[in-house]
Simulated scan of single mutants.
Amino acid sequence: MLDDPDDRHLLETRVASETLCEGSFLKGRRDTVRMPDGSTSTREYIIHPGAVVIIPLLDDGRVLLERQFRYPVGRVMTEFPAGKLEPGEDPLHCAQRELLEETGYTAGQWAHAGALHLAIAYSTEIIHIFFARDLRAGRRHLDADEFLDVCILSDEDFSAACRQGRVTDAKTLSCALWLQNVRSGAWGLDWRPA
């Protein structure tokens, strides 16, 4: 039932569309849609260019995370390294770039785990999930307006931070599920050299 090949009875069709705002990064839209029963409704949503998140695995079994102030929520957040895709950019290239820029690390092996839609009710954002291992430390290349700390946690400390509500970032919590299942062997990864 989860992958019903005939979902036509659930589909909404765009009838009209207008731009509400257009920034350098995000765009706001309002669409009029025809509902499955023939009535119409409106949908307001954000167009996002897409992003990546990286789960960096250190050789000693710990994971690499970041702490940075996130203006919309007004607090310092703990999260896995991540970043937005440039137009036409390959997600793996973006993941490699973001890991180096934000943490200074490069990885000898990468695995694409999957994707997640962060806020399906109001955003087109899709985040590509990558694992990285065989990490080598180097120099960070932060953007001029980027201020963050790199932190290293054991799986136990990371899991406790999630459970205790000290990690509330949705992409990082989703990655915690991936990490738990990969570590247990329940979910396999296709590792490839960098």
Rank of each mutant, 00 (worst) to 15 (best):
R140P: 13
A111K: 04
R133H: 07
L116K: 02
L153R: 03
L116E: 07
R133L: 08
R166Q: 11
A144F: 10
Q109F: 09
D134G: 06
L142F: 09
D169Y: 12
G114D: 04
A144I: 10
F130G: 00
T168A: 07
D149G: 01
A119Y: 14
I120C: 04
V150T: 14
Q109I: 06
G138N: 07
A115V: 14
T168N: 09
S154K: 11
W110I: 11
E146G: 01
V150K: 00
R139L: 06
I120M: 11
D157S: 10
E146I: 04
F158N: 00
R166T: 02
I129F: 05
D169W: 05
D169E: 13
T124I: 07
F131L: 05
A137K: 09
A115E: 15
A170Q: 11
A161I: 00
D157N: 11
E125A: 12
R133W: 08
F147G: 07
H128D: 14
A119E: 15
D143A: 15
A137R: 14
H117T: 13
I152N: 00
G114Q: 04
F147V: 15
R166D: 10
C162S: 05
G165C: 07
R139Q: 12
D145K: 08
I126S: 09
L118S: 15
I127G: 01
S159N: 12
H128Q: 14
I152C: 01
A113N: 04
A113I: 02
C151W: 00
A121Q: 15
R139F: 04
R133N: 09
S123F: 06
F131T: 03
S154R: 11
H112D: 01
R140W: 01
S154I: 13
A144N: 06
A113L: 11
T168K: 10
E125R: 14
E125N: 13
E125G: 06
G114M: 07
T168Y: 01
A121H: 14
A170D: 12
F158L: 13
F131D: 03
